[in-house]
Design a protein around this nucleic acid. Structure first.
Lengths: 132, 132
DNA sequence: CCACGTCGCGGGCATATACCCGCAACCCAT
DNA sequence: ATGGGTTGCGGGTATATGCCCGCGACGTGG
């Protein structure tokens, strides 16, 4: 008989982890998707929406919308590149503060999992997921 | 330095698998979330929205909306239980046909992954994800 | 038998995500 | 320089998902 496909298992696990990390990071006022995106921005800012999208493997329009939410929250700033078509994103001071304040919360969540499941297990899981 | 958290890796892998399975199952006109939900319904129909939600670990309101989409597509039918509060879901003939027709497509996607990564790898990955 | 607490739902609100269309900016070949 | 192809975005449309609120149905203690 057909067992749950890896996709279903993966989606389910993903939802659980999102909830877990969302709760951990909540005190700084963002969710894990936003925090993760801001970390990506921090590594390459200033960056255009399309370049950022390619980097994090998300649709450009998704990036655009998500960034706009962060902009409304005052965590990132949007500007224009030399190429007038390009919209560039940079973190604001408030955004950097969220990253700084959130880092230990993120580490805590990470550590809780490592403690519960073992670092080696987590390493193998990372590798397995990347292989997909 | 901080490596990507398991949550980010998981979300990314989840998106990739969703895209992969969505494409595989697309010929029958539903996405993998809908197909998966219909399979769950098939196993326990008739079932109330709340019971179904508990079973698949999704918020009741999410179930309600997703089921309504399937209803509009003519794949499930909504009814009332003895308890007049309850909304019960059952598959329609068209819904059962989608499940039947989709099964081999789903199997194909599953098999493609097994072939590429190995059954044992997939088994371990399943187990690891469930452990989260 | 009625008031109050509980349960099941629908709907509002917000985010994440993808795909498609159309516009404006850019670039290149003629 | 001009026309046509390419590129970057915004906005529309649709699904998935969670939380919260309010309503109506149930059920039980007085």
């Amino acid at each position: 008989m057909s067992l749950p496909c890896i996709c279903t298992t993966l989606r389910s696990a993903s939802r659980r982890m999102i909830a877990f990390y969302d709760e951990a990071i909540a005190p700084v006022g963002v969710n894990i998707a936003q925090f993760s995106l801001m970390r990506s921005i921090a590594r390459v800012e200033p960056v255009t929406l399309t370049a950022l999208g390619r980097r994090v493997e998300l649709d450009r329009s998704t990036i655009g919308r998500n960034v706009r939410v962060l902009e409304k929250m005052g965590l990132v700033a949007l500007g224009r590149g030399e190429d007038q078509r390009e919209a560039t994103v940079t973190l604001t001071d408030a955004g950097r503060k969220v990253l700084d304040d959130g880092a230990p919360l993120w580490d805590g969540a990470q550590k809780a999992l490592d403690d519960r499941l073992g670092v080696e297990f987590m390493r193998r899981l990372h590798a397995a997921l990347d292989a997909l």
